[in-house]
Simulated scan of single mutants.
Amino acid sequence: MVIRVVVADDQELVRSGFALILDLADGIEVVAEVGDGADAVAAVRAHRADVALLDIRMPGTDGIAACRAITEAGDCRCVMLTTFDSDAYVYDALHAGAAGFLLKDVRRDDLVHAVRVAATGDALLAPTVARRLIAEYVSRPAPGPPAARLDVLTARERETLLHLAHGLSNAEIADRLTVSEHTVKTHVGHVLAKLGLRDRIQAVICAYETGLVTPSP
């Protein structure tokens, strides 16, 4: 199956460069290159794109608003482009449904990999990007025990959520819990279903918001 991608960035050289890299990759087709969020939303709808690569900062409709509109309208996954140090909108992007983040100086192979991961429905939780962003921008919860929202989870599911919040992969969680990766996938699925979450990134947000995990000072 070919992964259909929309690339949205107001800098022509940036979006053309990303589009060229992705078009050269097997199984990926860039169906549109656009310069603002409104055009990205329209292009995703017109081409039934699987993944939208969105710059957070764009004139007119920005990447966050575009991400929210895209995720609410269908199954297209949104990956945000950020300069990391200067973007103060990560929390909003996560709540808008972003599946992950890429730095604008991302390596060629990592860009291709990120698009393929997003297309499978998974989230991008690379420790060097997403976990640090989440730790910096998610609001600090009030002191006290984890919120009652987590009471629907079993002890093992809560432990799984804790490991997700620390950025561990399924294989790493399986090693920590001394179970199979299949069992971990089952636990993750139960966590998402019980808490009404879309993906692993939303699970991480939930872990911070409920006080199960607190960002490092």
Rank of each mutant, 00 (worst) to 15 (best):
I3K: 09
S169P: 03
M80R: 03
L13A: 15
A46V: 01
V129Q: 01
V191H: 00
A88T: 13
C67W: 00
T128K: 13
E157I: 04
L212T: 06
R116N: 12
V79N: 01
H47F: 12
S139I: 05
T186Y: 13
I3Q: 06
H166A: 04
G60Y: 02
Y208A: 05
V79P: 02
L195G: 05
L153G: 08
L195Y: 01
S16T: 14
E172G: 06
T71F: 09
D87Y: 07
T186F: 09
D75Q: 14
R116D: 11
C206H: 00
R176C: 11
D62R: 10
A73S: 14
A119D: 02
V6H: 01
T154N: 08
G121K: 10
A99W: 09
L53I: 10
T83R: 09
H47C: 02
E33R: 15
R132S: 08
Y89S: 13
V31I: 06
T210R: 11
V90A: 10
L150G: 04
I205K: 13
R200G: 09
V2R: 12
H166E: 12
V106F: 10
C67A: 13
A8H: 03
V34D: 00
V14K: 01
P127V: 12
A25S: 15
R4Q: 11
G121A: 08
P127H: 15
G211K: 02
G196V: 06
R140F: 05
V117T: 14
Y137I: 04
I70V: 07
K185N: 13
L162Q: 07
A142L: 14
V30T: 08
P146C: 12
D50H: 14
V112K: 13
D199W: 01
V6M: 03
H163W: 07
R48E: 14
I201K: 01
G35V: 06
T214P: 00
P143E: 06
F84D: 08
A8W: 09
H95C: 14
G63H: 08
F18P: 02
I70M: 04
V179D: 01
E159Y: 01
E72S: 12
L53A: 01
A165D: 05
R140Q: 11
R48W: 04
D9I: 05
A38V: 05
P141D: 12
F101V: 00
V51S: 03
L24M: 13
L212A: 03
A114H: 03
F101M: 07
C76V: 02
A96N: 03
T178Q: 10
T183E: 07
A165M: 03
S86G: 10
A171I: 09
T120D: 14
D109A: 15
N170A: 13
F84L: 15
A25H: 10
R158F: 07
L94W: 02
F18I: 06
P59Q: 11
V41W: 04
E136I: 14
V138C: 11
G60L: 04
